[in-house]
Computed example of a mutant assay.
Amino acid sequence: MKLAETVTFGGGTLDRAAELRGTDLDAAARMAGGGTILMWRGKPLVCAGALAPLMRLPLDHPVLGGARRVLLGRREDGTLVFAHDISHWTPADMPGTLDSFADPTEQSHPDLPDAVFAELRRIMVLLDAEEAAEAATARALFGWHDIHGFCARCGAPSEIVQAGWQRTCPSCGAHHFPRTDPVVIMLVTDGNSALLGRSPGWPEGMYSLLAGFVEPGETLEAAVRREVYEETRVPVGEVEYLASQPWPFPASLMIGMRGRALGREITIDPVEIEDAIWVTRENVSDAMAGRHAFLMPAREGAIAQFLLRNWLADRLD
């Protein structure tokens, strides 16, 4: 798919500068300039009001004291970009919607005027390609560290090394690296129609493409056929790859696929999904324009809407 890398989070050009991860990062930062983006509980710091662009702080900013640090990479101008996490800070009013499907809250730090922390899923389409890719990488890395503080081999506390791209166990010497879970998300079509489903708890009327994790020993094609059949009993024949999207909520790689349905009869698995329907191109077009009687489009910025929009425009090649 020619437009594959225009998907949200997929258009960054940052050089990850892996050769610097084991060096003196303080010295490298002084030589290469650069700054840092700031995260709190998975939320990036952005300009208040506009919610874009990302705020970039100098590396000697006092708010960074005690923060975790990772090196994201090197920009095209040669400057380095870091990410810091201050999740140890507790705001006066702790929201109860953190990491939810749609968290509308914003948090202001007293030492950061004119800036707020905002949910990345809410603001992802407001960021340019470079900012979105950097924020997604930072969220994914810090999220991995949050749940991998102990060695998976012996259970001892592990330590952050390699500029945040590795954890090492001082007890048994095991090395642990950030993981990404492959997820197939399928544009299953039959002529002028596409198969959509919805999960419990989604906003009323919202339908999206079917998706599911790839299991051990499975090809992407086999995962597509299995997931669609498990959820809807619709058999799928020909399958092809379209595009992928890093999805750091918390650690997935969404792998966009197209499948050709071999039947149209739907029998849903209520454990997996709440509903599934066939929709026409006209239905999807009306939903995206806000004209459909009940159908809401998939979330803007998600690969599901990206694939559906390109399907409407005949740009899947």
Rank of each mutant, 00 (worst) to 15 (best):
L141T: 02
E159R: 14
R75H: 11
D128P: 04
T90D: 02
R74Y: 02
L98R: 02
L127Q: 10
E130Y: 10
P110K: 00
V184H: 00
E130S: 14
R139M: 13
R68V: 06
C169E: 06
A115G: 12
Q166S: 11
C151E: 00
G191E: 05
Q162S: 13
W144F: 13
G143H: 09
D77K: 12
W144A: 08
S108F: 01
R69C: 14
A140F: 13
P157A: 09
D146E: 15
F150T: 14
E130D: 15
A102I: 02
L112Y: 07
A156W: 08
H145K: 07
P113F: 10
L126I: 01
S158G: 10
L120D: 08
L120Q: 02
V125M: 14
S171T: 11
E106C: 11
E131W: 01
T189G: 02
R122F: 01
H88L: 05
Q107W: 07
A152L: 11
P182H: 13
G78N: 08
V125Q: 12
L120Y: 14
A118Q: 04
T180I: 14
A138F: 08
G96F: 07
P104F: 04
L120T: 06
H175N: 11
A102P: 00
E119V: 02
L141V: 05
T79E: 15
T189I: 06
H109I: 03
T137I: 06
D111E: 15
P182K: 15
P113W: 06
A118D: 05
W144R: 07
R121I: 00
H148Y: 10
I86A: 00
G66Q: 04
A163R: 08
R153Y: 07
T189V: 13
H88P: 00
I185P: 01
R121G: 12
A163Y: 08
F101S: 00
W144V: 06
F177P: 00
R69Q: 15
A83P: 03
T79H: 10
H176P: 00
G191S: 07
A174V: 10
A83W: 03
S158D: 13
D103T: 11
I160K: 13
P113D: 12
R179M: 12
H88Y: 06
H84K: 01
L127G: 03
D103E: 06
P157D: 05
I86V: 09
M186D: 15
L80N: 09
E134K: 01
P170K: 11
L71F: 03
S108R: 15
P157S: 08
H109A: 02
R139D: 08
E130K: 09
F117C: 05
D77E: 13
L71A: 04
R167H: 15
P157M: 03
L126P: 01
A102T: 02
L112N: 05
E159I: 11
P182V: 15
W89E: 04
F142P: 04
T168C: 06
